[in-house]
Write a protein that binds this DNA or RNA. Structure first.
Length: 239
DNA sequence: CCCTGATTCGC
DNA sequence: GCGAATCAGG
């Protein structure tokens, strides 16, 4: 019995949208992660693929920079892009897709409360991320999402998704999130020990009482700056 | 120029 | 159904 293994880890080269991947996609999408992050997390898929899938799944567009204020008036079509075909056809492969930049200051998800935006778990006394980093040298099937730009030397991406890893087996993983548990992220997505708070939420909030206290801080009068910088999710990934 | 998501459209 | 190409706003 070679069974022992039979994990889901390497998804073969046939990257298909399995239930689990879809679940991860949903959670992250709803959790406020950007398509790029999700794509990176899932691995093997481009940001566009994630977006496309998300829409097909019926997930809606959260704060989109573009359609955010799309008005309902449009007698004329502002979209005269008749795509004359002959694009993909010519280039079935070879695409320098621009993967994603890990660090994205753009949007921090978080519920829209009037208070300040939640902040990241902060570098807790520095004891969150310093740990392992990647698994697997290079799969044989990692799509060629070459880094077109001169970003950083892409570290060996771990192929194991946000699967139940022994490291976080007893912690609240992405897939364990629910409306009842605190969604405060501990660490960053992708980290081997990344997990969520998991405490019972403060009724009406996505976080537990403790983290609500951190997420919703009253604006202090200038002069009394606090040390902790904000942002829960879309933060600078410290890789 | 970078990012973001939305949409189109060939496969 | 999938996702690259493209669009479009910030």
């Amino acid at each position: 019995m070679q069974a022992a293994a039979s994990r889901h880890e390497i998804q073969d080269c046939a990257m298909s949208w399995t239930d689990e991947r879809i679940a991860t996609l949903k959670k992250m999408w709803e959790g406020g992660s950007t398509a790029s992050q999700i794509a990176e997390e899932l691995g093997g898929v481009s940001r566009n693929a994630v977006i496309g899938k998300a829409h097909r799944l019926g997930l809606k567009s959260r704060p989109s920079p573009v359609k955010a204020n799309e008005k309902k008036k449009a007698p004329a079509k502002p979209k005269p892009a008749p795509k004359p075909a002959a694009k993909k056809t010519a280039k079935p492969a070879a695409k320098p897709a621009a993967p994603a930049a890990p660090a994205k200051p753009a949007a921090a998800p978080a519920p829209k409360q009037d208070a300040a935006i939640p902040s990241q778990p902060l570098p807790n006394k520095g004891s969150d991320l310093p740990k392992i980093v990647s698994v697997g040298p290079g799969a044989s099937c990692v799509r060629v999402r070459a880094i077109s730009r001169h970003r950083s030397p892409r570290p060996p991406r771990r192929l194991v998704p946000a699967k139940p890893s022994p490291e976080i087996a007893d912690k609240t993983s992405l897939l364990d999130l629910s409306d009842k548990v605190c969604r405060w992220p501990m660490g960053h997505p992708g980290e081997p020990d990344f997990h969520f708070c998991g405490e019972a939420v403060n009724p009406g909030f996505p976080y537990c009482v403790e983290h609500c206290g951190r997420a919703y801080q009253a604006q202090l009068p200038r002069g009394a700056r606090r040390p902790p910088p904000p942002l829960p999710f879309g933060g600078p990934r410290v890789r």
